[in-house]
Design a binder for these strands. Structure first.
Length: 834
RNA sequence: GCCCUCGUAUCCCAAUGGCAGAGGAAGAGGUCUUAAAAACCUUUCAGUGUCGGUUCGAGUCCGACCGGGGGCACCA
């Protein structure tokens, strides 16, 4: 500010505050006060505010800015309400990107990772996050992954971690296997390369054992989790009800007969089965193939193996397959039907074999058409006959050509009858099948948690004894980490070669590492007792804090991380280690920050750098912008944002604090009632708004309070009125949820000691919530006709009488009979007349 | 194809089934200023995607459709 303008100012008060200086000043004060460590002493009710821990890739971006701002509103609100808040932070610090970056830069992944963590930690501090830094953890620390390994071994003891050979998703670029969840549209979730299949022996978690419980327990989350997340998990688990039906495969020449079970959701169409299909890449196909068809089958199989998921996903695809030279016998009518191998049947769903009912399943019908196989309608739905139209019908209808089912008219009884019969004859039974597959957890990469298993030629799989955990990653500094299709760990001979813990003979360590989703499936438990050495967590500490009251994070983890964490929690429950079955009581998914129509990202070049925004507008303006942008779960279009508007508002709020002329501690009692009412009404409303996550409306309410306070000072009760002090103090406390630096500036200017973050929520005076008069609306036939000023506790009878006495109403009712009067005192009267 | 979700002013968005507008952005006008910025004041703008139903009363509840976003999908 120039000397000239300063000399013209009456009050020597500047019109704005120095954002940068304020950030520097309060950052130091907060570091000294350390106000956000959870006391965990039982003096106050506990609340656990959890935010999805970040992956340490470079510095923070606007996505972090949004989720952190929203999350911090909740945590800071809880502090103000007097709870003991657990608001921890940590890093999901194992993973491929660090490894790839390290290969590019020719340095150790740990160097890159821990440097990024420091950068992000510093940015979070600058951003004013109310984290409890004393509980910070990193999943790549041996003290952490020791317990990841320990948990793996416990899962294995319970039969929930096992090894098997099967075709797996393979990313040729990252040179590692992927879980189903990491394959999106046939592409690698990480690098976008086309995923292929490989036959490999891999570790799995038996998440399918928990499919039904994962589904059922979502009932209890309905009120507090977003419906779309529950819907996604439901889709992913993919429960379907039907039956297992046994078909005999006839002996053929030397080949013996055998029983093959199929899963079907339409056992009632069994009489319409005209052929039988086995997944070409299932073991079964090779086993039952007749010798004279062997050559044709092998050729077909080779062709199928070459296909990528992209090929398979294209919907307009012609059906392909090959006859296996064998016949199956339909258990209900003894009919012989040919057995084919095809790629439209999946080896890893159901039993890898289906009964084909072309009349009532479009895929089977397409196949029948391609190979000129018979079609037989067994349900007449009233639609055109699929035998002629080649359009399968799937609805209810009258059963035909179905022996004892004939004449039934609905699916439910058809299914019940045939399943009953099959069960009676021992040829089938009702069954449930899930789309969910077991979780493939091994990865052929270096920067992950080693699998604590030793392979011994004599003893087989031997777990590393608990007292030898953790199996620490070898220091491969300088070694070649480039992906080669086998884990880089396999090449570290002095690490791999060990004595068998069981027989003492020479053995080798398992050289795969775990999927990083294993690390993140239990970190929220570790936060409760991050230094505990007797187990992954202190059961008592977990009992005190868990389940987390609020989890905040991106919808991109709707399936993967959240499903896995739920699975882990249920297993731990069954092990008796925790006494709850769901880890996250409530879930909030923030939207994405969109720029130029797409989510911000480095590769698209549409990113807006958080540091730049902070330099330009300050931390508080950025936080306020993110919170005010709209409902938290909606996407934010950066083009609609106005951080400069946010800064303008903050300065406007801040100016109020300089106008207050009363002393701190002045009783508010005698203050201007109108302003006091506005203050107390705002506080009460904000309580409800925060609880229902309508943070954008919280900001609007604070703006409103700032506006009326401005008016009160300039043209109302004036700056000396205690109500003004009360209002401005309330504004500071309210702003402390969103704009901590500005709030602290105001609090200090109001004559208080830091920190405003712990000032405490003002007690709402119920008496000040009562309005002197209310505007009652009088409607005739639902249309507004008059407004009345009435007392808030007017009786229904009085209000009705007043309404009917109103001249406007009497005119409107002329020549009509009043049929009904609806009175909702004190707000509304609706007169029905005719 | 199945499932979830959203649709209010120029834009972002509010509105326990009860007066459609709280807040912001943009626009217009004004006060202050030599001027501009800042600040302050005033002000314009929709009948809620469409159709139907429930109700005394529907932006809100129900159904169908249209449009946007998302999930699942050769899953038998």
């Amino acid at each position: 500010m120039s000397e000239q303008t300063q000399s013209q100012e009456h009050a020597a008060e500047p019109a704005t505050y120095d954002v940068v200086a304020a950030q520097d000043r309060w950052r130091k004060v907060w570091d000294d006060l350390n106000p956000f460590e959870a006391a965990d002493d039982g003096s106050r009710e506990r609340r656990y505010a959890l935010t999805m821990f970040p992956y340490p890739s470079g510095d923070l971006h606007m996505g972090h800015a949004e989720v952190m701002a929203l999350h911090d509103v909740i945590a800071r609100y809880w502090w103000q309400r007097g709870y003991d808040v657990l608001n921890p932070i940590g890093w999901d610090s194992f993973g491929l990107p660090a490894e790839n970056a390290a290969i590019r830069r020719d340095e150790h992944p740990a160097t890159y990772t821990y440097a990024n963590i420091e950068t992000q930690a510093e940015s979070f501090r600058r951003y004013g996050m109310s984290f409890d830094w004393s509980r910070r953890l990193h999943t790549s620390d041996p003290e952490y992954y020791r317990w990841t390994q320990w948990l793996f071994l416990r899962f294995r003891e319970r039969g929930l971690a096992y090894r098997r050979s099967s075709p797996v998703n393979w990313c040729p670029n990252d040179q590692t296997v992927l879980a189903n969840e990491q394959v999106v549209g046939g592409m690698c979730d990480r690098c976008g390369a086309e995923v292929t299949k490989r036959e490999l022996t891999q570790w799995y978690f038996k998440v399918t054992d928990y499919a039904q419980r994962l589904l059922d327990d979502m009932e209890g989350l309905k009120a507090t989790w977003p419906e779309r997340v529950l819907a996604m998990q439901r889709n992913w688990i993919g429960r379907s009800e039907g039956a297992h039906v046994d078909f005999e495969i006839e002996p053929a020449g030397e080949e013996p007969g055998r029983t093959v079970t199929v899963f079907t959701t339409r056992p009632d169409t069994l009489y319409g089965a005209t052929f039988f299909v086995v997944a070409a890449d299932a073991k079964l196909a090779g086993e039952i193939c007749a010798p004279e068809q062997r050559e044709a089958f092998e050729a077909y199989l080779a062709q199928v193996r070459k296909e990528t998921d992209i090929d398979r996903l294209s919907s307009e695809r012609e059906k392909t397959g090959v006859f296996l030279g064998r016949y199956a016998v339909n258990p209900v009518n003894g009919e012989r039907i040919p057995v084919w191998a095809a790629d439209y049947v999946l080896a890893d769903y159901g039993t890898g074999a289906v009964m084909a009912v072309p009349a009532h399943d479009q895929r089977d019908l397409d196949f029948a058409k391609a190979f000129d196989l018979p079609v037989r309608r067994v349900v007449d739905t009233g639609e055109e006959n699929p035998e002629e139209t080649f359009v399968a019908t799937a609805g209810d209808g009258v059963y035909v050509n179905s022996d004892d089912l004939d004449g039934l008219t609905d699916k439910a009884s058809g299914i019940a009858q045939i399943v009953g019969r099959l069960e009676g004859e021992g040829r089938g039974k009702g069954a449930v099948n899930f789309r969910l597959r077991d979780w493939l957890l091994s990865r052929q990469r270096f920067w992950g948690c080693p699998i604590p298993i030793i392979h011994c030629p004599t003893c087989g799989e031997v777990p590393v004894p608990d007292d030898q955990l953790p199996v620490v990653l070898p220091d491969l500094r300088g070694a070649d980490l480039k992906p080669k299709g086998t884990s880089p760990l396999a090449a570290a001979e002095e690490w791999v070669d060990v004595d068998c813990p069981s027989c003492g003979g020479p053995a080798k360590r398992d050289s795969d590492t775990m999927d990083t989703f294993v690390d993140s499936s239990w970190y929220f438990l570790r936060y409760c007792s991050p230094d505990y050495t007797e187990g992954p967590f202190d059961p008592e500490a977990v009992r005190r804090w868990m389940p987390a009251h609020q989890y905040v994070g991106g919808v991109e983890h709707a399936i993967l991380h959240l499903l896995y964490s739920r699975f882990f929690t249920k297993v731990l429950h069954d092990m008796g280690m925790v006494d709850f079955e769901e880890p996250f009581q409530a879930l909030l998914n923030q939207g994405q920050v969109i720029n130029q129509g797409k989510a911000m990202s480095k590769s698209l070049g549409n990113g807006v750098n958080l540091g730049d925004m902070i330099d330009q507008y300050g931390v508080d303006a950025v936080r306020l912008t993110m919170v005010f942008a709209g409902p938290p779960e909606d996407d934010i279009d950066w083009a609609d944002m106005s951080p400069s508007g946010s800064l303008k508002f903050l300065q406007r709020a801040w100016r109020l604090s300089g106008d207050v002329t009363s002393e701190p501690g002045t009783p508010y009692d005698g203050g201007d009632v109108t302003l006091r009412k506005a203050t107390h009404r705002t506080l009460r409303e904000v309580e409800h708004l925060v609880d229902s996550h309508r943070f954008n409306v919280v900001v609007a309410r604070v703006m409103e309070l700032v506006n009326v306070t401005r008016k009160a000072i300039d043209s109302g009760c004036g700056p000396t009125d205690p109500a003004v002090r009360e209002a401005v103090e309330a504004v500071a406390i309210l702003l402390s949820l969103v704009a901590p630096y500005t709030a602290e500036e105001m609090w200090s200017r109001l004559g208080h000691e830091p920190t405003v973050a712990k000032a405490g929520w003002p007690t709402v005076d119920e008496a000040l919530l009562v309005q002197d008069s209310v505007t009652a609306v009088v409607q005739v036939q639902g249309k507004l006709r008059a407004k009345l000023e009435v007392g808030p506790d007017i009786s229904e009878a009085d209000l009705e009488a007043m309404a009917l006495a109103e001249p406007v109403i009497q005119r409107a009712l002329e020549g009509k009979t009043v049929r009904k009067v609806i009175v909702r005192a004190p707000k509304l009267v609706n007169i029905v007349a005719g």
